[in-house]
Every structure is written in structure tokens, then in C-alpha cells.
């Protein structure tokens, strides 16, 4: 494998790995992070008994100082990252692959 080919191969692998990781986090794992780091986003974490008896109480409310454009931070990040974020990541990956394809043809 020539030097250019090695560079092209590594570029493809790394850019693909990074883009997939980012989009996997924004589109999938971020939801889990919100659940695991619940105290960051919500006022109070109820116990299981409270969960059953007090569903609908203020302890479930998000922290208002973390609001963006009126939306809770975790919700805003989820919808924007999985939409605009994913589109941008996809466009960047396409641009890199377009350039790589031109080099492969050359």
C-alpha cells in the first residue's frame, strides 16, 4: 500500500469512527446520560414509592436556570443534536469522503 493510500485509508477509518461515535452519542447515548445524571437536570429525584404516589408533582420539574429558549436543557439538546447536529456531522463526513473519492480516482 502506497503512502497516499495508507493516508487515505486511515483518514476514512478515523473520520468514520469519529463521526459515528458523535452521532451515536447525540442520537442514542445522550438519552441514557440524562437518566444517569438526573440530578444535573432535575430538581429532585423521587424514591420508587414517591414515583408511584406523587407522579405529577413538582419534584419532577427540570431546573429552570438550565432552560434554553424556554426549553429544558436536556430536551433542547436532544432534539437539536439529533436533528441539526446529525445533519452537520453527516455533511462534514460527506465532504471528507468526496475528497477521498477524488483522490482514489486520481
Amino acid at each position: 500500500m502506497g503512502n497516499d493510500n495508507i493516508k487515505g485509508y486511515k483518514l476514512e477509518i478515523w473520520v468514520t469512527a469519529i463521526c459515528f461515535t458523535i452521532v451515536a452519542i447525540t442520537g442514542g447515548f445522550f438519552s441514557s446520560v440524562v437518566v444517569i445524571m438526573n440530578e444535573t437536570f432535575f430538581n429532585q429525584v423521587p424514591t420508587p414509592e414517591e414515583l408511584v404516589n406523587n407522579y405529577g408533582e413538582t419534584m419532577f420539574a427540570f431546573k429552570e436556570h438550565l432552560a434554553v429558549w424556554g426549553f429544558p436543557l436536556h430536551y433542547f439538546l436532544l432534539i437539536v443534536l439529533s436533528w441539526i447536529g446529525a445533519t452537520l456531522i453527516g455533511a462534514i463526513w460527506c465532504l471528507v469522503m468526496d475528497r477521498l473519492e477524488e483522490k482514489q480516482r486520481a
Binding site: 451515536a24 442514542g28 438519552s31 441514557s32 437518566v35 407522579y55 405529577g56 413538582t58 419534584m59 420539574a61
Partner: peptide, 24 residues
Amino acid sequence: AVPHYFWAMVAHPVVYIAVFLGSF
């Protein structure tokens, strides 16, 4: 009116990972 509307804690985090695996 609905304090729990944005509440994220109704399911175990692995549910979201399963959703990720299923969709991706």
C-alpha cells in the same frame, strides 16, 4: 399543569441504548 412532562426517569438507561441499537 403537567410537572412531569419533561421527566426522563421512567425507564432504565439501557432502554435508550436498546433504542439506539435497534434504530442504528
